[in-house]
Design a protein around this nucleic acid. Structure first.
Length: 878
DNA sequence: CGAACCACGC
DNA sequence: GACGTACGTGGTTCGC
């Protein structure tokens, strides 16, 4: 027989935790649901992980408890429960009822005491007990048979307190936790303890003397006159504090263990509450989403499966959808087409379309306007069949992204749903996922694709209005839409790779890796998997006994910054760092790249995601060509494998110098920063002069390094913590640096304040070209979420405007190359740089027009500056 | 198959 | 004072 397992949940504490950990969610009825939601997440997780045979959720009863008789100020000075939370408690109780989980509260006692009493009873009956709370006080219940799980951050992560863990963490046994509380008190419960004694002192004393009572008997042996006096003075208070902190195991609870037996829940009960609360993701998890989607039959539509395309089907304005199942459209084939316009709704098979001259003519006619979803994807795939898509006047994907980049866009259905349009299934449901994915019969496929085109047709005007309302039409029509065509060109053309060079480098690296591996095994005294942080941790910290600097939630951290601190302690560290560096090159950049090179052309065709980042930047996948190594020479050599696609051509690279800081100077209108850029000063040195109040010649390299890191922090919106990490200084020092920076540039300081205020008023921030980012969490009462939103408010206009600028430069550049009749082509964009390939005889031309176009694409209060270089490979363009 | 960890770029 | 900290992509390991 399996052991009985009782789970005891501290209801109030978990509700509080959930409430403060999650943003203040609202459901459609205007009820706040964050605590309910968090509580539900926690509960379902517990049921799944623990599979309890018995379960109870305990709540605090009224305001006063037996503890108030001992100490009337117990829990005094506590903030009132926010009304936004109070209103959620009835729903939490309802939730438990729906789950058929017992709940209990007891007059004069706290949830802790109920839990303490029942856990003791259960232990005596031979149960395994698990206590779940957000309050560390409960750890005193930890015993051989009882584990106490305390939520750590948010609500999903927990720390398990077993007696062993407590000993390891505090160096005292579990039953001394209350002695610790007696000494140090607890400000949240208003338990006084002994003034001036905190966790460290308390632990030291208990380790030396045993229990609190033992200690108080031997006060004269305590070292330190002050401490002695304090203990003597507050003896009684300490005893009382211990009493207050002690959870009673003998509360008069009226439920028996048998009452807590858990028999599972009625799916319908839970389902209907989830629906009422609007917990859609949880409904999905219950596995009812699919069922529902099938149940809920979509409104019927009529359409034609086209055998032969006729002229009257191809009118002047159509919604046109191109389906490609695989995500990599460079290699996947078209699945089918659909067209919706005033003449009708049509499904056209790939064959029927591609054989038709009429279709090709229509697709390539710029006067036949098309509304599409993902123009770039459609364009690239049609090109494989010799068709150049023209006349796209609306791209639903890009419009959705422009309106709110935070929406996750998966397919046409996800976009439709967001706009209240539900007559379509998601691709995941329609085609299936993973191994189960398949293309259904023509009839069904036709309907699905026609539904997509219907979405395009019916959402278009609505989104045009929204763009107009947001003043984003210019951004949409004149920036993102034309850019998608330029990106299509760049992606389709691809970049030539020197396969031999790459393979040679791979061989060399393998030899070196073998060598290093041997050294590491010799130094470790055994063979192990160096790539496994877990195994590596055992070797370094258990076997070799190196000091543990940082832990992750699953074990020792072996990240580079940790290892760097250990470099002096053992020579194995340097070898491991080197192994990691080369391993990364080998797996990601040699093997990874080789995997995606086109066998015939020996080119790579990345895909730029134009509708993903929150800031407006592009991203790049398969392969990611925006993170090819450059910092370390060994890695930088990878760039030697990227070569021009034609004989006697060169790679030409141009990058904006300090574009973000220039943008900052402009939007913050900071006098000093503006003049620094107008005089073309070294901005890091200039910042060092300002921050450290020294003359240019007195700026040391260390000052400049610090100034550079602060500038970096400003640009990327990192916190004092982030800055402290990157400079290896304390958080306080980092905070002081930031403060001094802001004093040095008062315009920047003003901007930072204004933009946060503005974001709080409007709920979003904008960039130079009206890109938006919504920041709902900027009004959160959760410090974390709010701070993050505030930094984002400061940073996004900077980074996003820089992204706007380079995107515009790409468009201007494409036009200029055409005007000059140049053969040179744009290949890549890496956030602040553009990479071209060019015939040698156009180097001179590019040297003139690239900086000219890039520097003048927008006019700011400071000049934009572009550096460039060229060479036979990307490596040499430095 | 997904989560966790690590590392590369801007 | 808590809390966990720029944006991305991709590789490996590990447990389910």
């Amino acid at each position: 027989m399996t052991k009985n397992k009782l789970v005891l949940i501290d209801g109030n504490s978990i509700a509080y935790r959930a409430f403060f950990a999650l943003p203040l969610l609202n459901n459609d009825k205007g009820v706040h649901t964050n605590a309910i939601y968090g509580f539900t997440m926690m509960l379902t997780r517990i049921l799944e992980d623990e599979k309890p045979s018995h379960i109870l959720v305990a709540f605090d009863a009224g305001k006063t408890t037996f503890r108030h008789q001992t100490f009337s100020e117990y829990k005094g000075g506590r903030q009132k429960t926010p009304p936004e939370l109070s209103e959620q408690f009835p729903f939490i109780r309802e939730l438990l009822d729906r789950y058929s989980i017992s709940r209990y509260e007891l007059e004069n006692y706290e949830a802790d005491d109920i839990i303490g009493t029942l856990s003791l009873q259960a232990e005596k009956e031979g149960f395994e007990v698990k206590v779940i709370s957000g309050d560390k006080d409960l750890t005193q219940l930890s015993s051989e048979n009882t584990t106490v799980a305390i939520t750590k951050k948010g609500i999903t992560e927990i720390e398990e307190y077993t007696p062993a863990h407590i000993e390891e963490k505090y160096g005292i046994t579990a039953d001394r936790i209350i002695d610790m509380k007696g000494l140090m008190g607890d400000s949240s419960d208003n338990i006084p303890g002994v003034p001036g004694v905190g966790e460290k002192t308390a632990l030291k004393l208990l380790k030396e003397f045993g229990t609190l009572e033992d200690l108080l008997k031997s006060i004269d042996q305590v070292s330190g006159a002050k401490l002695k006096e304090k203990l003597e003075q507050h003896k009684d208070q300490a005893i009382m504090s211990k009493q207050l902190a002690t959870i009673t195991r003998e509360a008069p609870v009226e439920v028996s263990l048998q009452d807590l037996h858990y028999k599972g829940y009625e799916l319908d009960q839970v389902k209907s509450l989830y629906k009422e609360l609007g917990f859609n993701s949880l409904l999905d998890k219950l596995g009812v989403a699919d069922e529902d989607a099938e149940e809920e039959s979509l409104a019927e539509i009529s359409y034609t499966i086209v055998e032969k395309i006729e002229q009257e089907m191809l009118t002047d304005h159509s919604a046109f959808y191109v389906e490609i199942l695989e995500d990599n459209y460079h290699y996947a084939d078209i699945t089918g087409f659909s067209i919706v316009n005033e003449s009708g709704s049509y499904f056209i098979s790939k064959e029927a379309a591609l054989q038709s001259e009429l279709f090709k003519k229509w697709a390539e006619d710029p006067d036949k306007k098309k509304t599409v979803y993902d123009a770039k994807r459609s364009e690239v795939s049609l090109r494989h069949h010799g068709i150049h898509l023209k006349g796209v006047d609306f791209d639903l994907l890009l419009a959705t992204y422009i309106i709110d980049p935070s929406e996750t866009i998966e397919d046409v259905a996800s976009v439709a749903k967001k706009h209240g349009y539900s007559a379509i299934q998601s691709d995941e449901i329609f085609y299936g996922k993973g191994a189960k994915r398949k293309v259904p019969e023509t009839e069904q496929l036709a309907e699905h694709l026609v539904r997509k085109a219907l979405v395009l047709d019916s959402l278009k005007n609505q989104l045009i209005d929204e763009l107009e309302e947001n003043k984003q039409s210019d951004l949409f029509y004149n920036l993102e839409m034309p850019l998608s065509l330029i990106l299509a060109d760049m992606e389709s053309f691809g970049i030539q790779v020197d396969l031999n060079r790459l393979k040679e480098m791979g061989k060399e690296i393998i030899l070196k890796l073998d060598e290093i591996e041997k050294n590491i095994f010799a130094l470790a005294g055994e063979a192990f998997n160096i790539n496994s942080p877990k195994q590596l941790g055992v070797i370094l910290f258990d076997k070799l006994g190196l000091p543990v600097i940082k832990k992750t939630k699953t074990g020792y951290s072996t990240s580079a910054d940790v290892l760097e601190k250990l470099e002096a302690d053992h020579e194995i560290i340097r070898e491991i760092l080197h192994y990691r560096q080369l391993g990364k090159l080998q797996s990601t950049y040699i093997e990874g790249l080789l995997k995606v090179v086109n066998n015939e052309s020996e080119k790579v065709h990345t895909r730029f995601n134009q509708a993903l980042t929150q800031t407006g930047r592009l991203s790049s996948t398969d392969p990611n060509l925006q993170n090819i190594p450059i910092r370390l020479e060994e890695g930088r050599k990878i760039r030697q494998a990227f070569i021009p696609s034609e004989q006697d051509w060169v790679i030409f690279a141009a990058d904006y110098s300090q574009i973000e800081l220039r943008v900052l100077a402009h939007i913050a209108d900071d006098e000093k920063l503006i003049s620094a850029f107008r005089e073309d000063l070294d901005i890091h040195t200039k910042t060092a002069m300002e921050v450290f109040h020294v003359e240019a010649e007195d700026v040391t390299s260390n000052m400049r390094r610090h100034a550079k890191a602060v500038n970096f922090g400003i640009v990327y919106g990192i916190s004092d913590y982030g800055l402290s990490q990157s400079l290896g200084i304390t958080r306080k020092e980092a905070g002081q640096f930031i403060e001094r920076y802001l004093e040095s540039y008062p315009g920047v300081k003003q901007y930072m304040e204004d933009i946060v205020y503005d974001a709080k008023q409007k709920g979003f921030v904008t960039t130079l070209l009206q890109r938006r980012r919504y920041l709902p969490e900027i009004t959160s009462r959760n410090f974390n979420l709010r701070s993050f939103a505030e930094r984002t408010a400061m940073n996004t206009p900077i980074q996003g405007s820089a992204a706007d600028i380079i995107k515009k430069a790409m468009i201007d550049m494409a036009a200029r190359l055409e005007k000059e009749n140049a053969k040179s082509r744009l290949l890549l964009q890496v956030h602040d740089e553009l990479i071209f390939e060019a015939p040698k005889d156009e180097i001179e031309l590019l040297s003139k027009i690239v900086p000219e176009v890039m520097e003048n694409t927008v006019e700011l209060k400071v000049p934009l500056k572009v550096d460039f270089s060229f060479g036979p490979t990307w490596f040499d363009a430095k």
